[in-house]
Design a protein around this nucleic acid. Structure first.
Lengths: 149, 149
DNA sequence: GATAAATTGCAATTGACTTGCAAAAAAATA
DNA sequence: TATTTTTTTGCAAGTCAATTGCAATTTATC
């Protein structure tokens, strides 16, 4: 089953299939979180998800456990956009190479936009198109060092 | 006065001058933090600094306040290397353009190395030279959006 | 439908980071 | 140098994201 990270509505049935395919119980909360992530135009934080589901309908700890499990299973990506918390988005499940994209966040209002291209030189034009100024970027690498592999 | 971000020992006097130049009180703690950052081969976290200075010799809140002030004055750079805390390094005080570099962090042992070049295509070679594998990179942008400027 | 396994809510806990306040140290002024 | 003003410090308490133990509930398995 193919899913896209943002702004792609998946049905409740598709969400449940995604859970089954990954050996995860098909519960109300997990389905809801998948639907929310698929509908959102930007990656969501745990507390945003919590607010959307409704504090009466679930506990924040259940959301954290779900997000952790999704991340372990490779269903979602955990993003740090320079805020002091993480955001989560669905991975494209048919994209073996994990063609992740990037985001621009306004340091003033916090608005987040998704970038469609991933060539650094191309970014500049895109930023002016988007109306963004005073760009700063954050680029870091992780890997497995020689001692550990 | 010229300082380099990592692995450059500055003297106590140089550290104190750096403080004065930036209108910051020349206290023992602030001088110590500058010296530690200049000596370290990798960016340091607040708690690493706290351990090195010695918990009996200062309070962690003073370290946080100092790091915050250094950051405000542009003396240091605040880095998020995909951990759940920040690391700090000295900026090169004579580098007007803030030619920041990047880092590789081993997802296994946490070891951090500094990259000397900043051309994305050049990174691949460097990683094999460093013996790093299974690279992942984290690239995000922030800026000021049209609504806010 | 009964049993085993996983998930949930609740409450308590950790760890990064912040803040108010009074005492101590540094800077400014005479 | 002595005195006043300003800044910094330690301590304690607090915030907020994220984690964990446990008993009750739900889902999966047979």
């Amino acid at each position: 089953m193919k899913t896209k990270c943002c702004d792609t509505h998946i049905s409740e049935e598709e969400a449940q299939n995604l859970l089954s395919e990954n050996g995860i119980s098909r519960t109300k909360i997990k389905t809801s979180i998948l639907l929310l992530l698929s509908k959102s135009k930007k990656p969501l934080s745990a507390s945003e998800i919590y607010q959307k589901i409704g504090p009466k309908n679930c506990d924040i700890s259940s959301i954290w456990r779900t997000l952790k499990k999704f991340h372990e299973k490779g269903i979602t990506r955990e993003l740090n956009l320079g805020e002091d918390f993480f955001r989560y988005e669905l991975k494209d499940s048919h994209d073996e190479q994990d063609h992740h994209h990037h985001h621009v966040r306004c340091r003033d209002c916090g608005d987040i936009k998704q970038l469609e291209e991933c060539d650094l030189s191309a970014f500049d034009k895109m930023f002016s198109k988007l109306g963004f100024k005073k760009m700063e970027h954050y680029l870091e690498f992780t890997g497995i060092c020689s001692k550990c592999s």
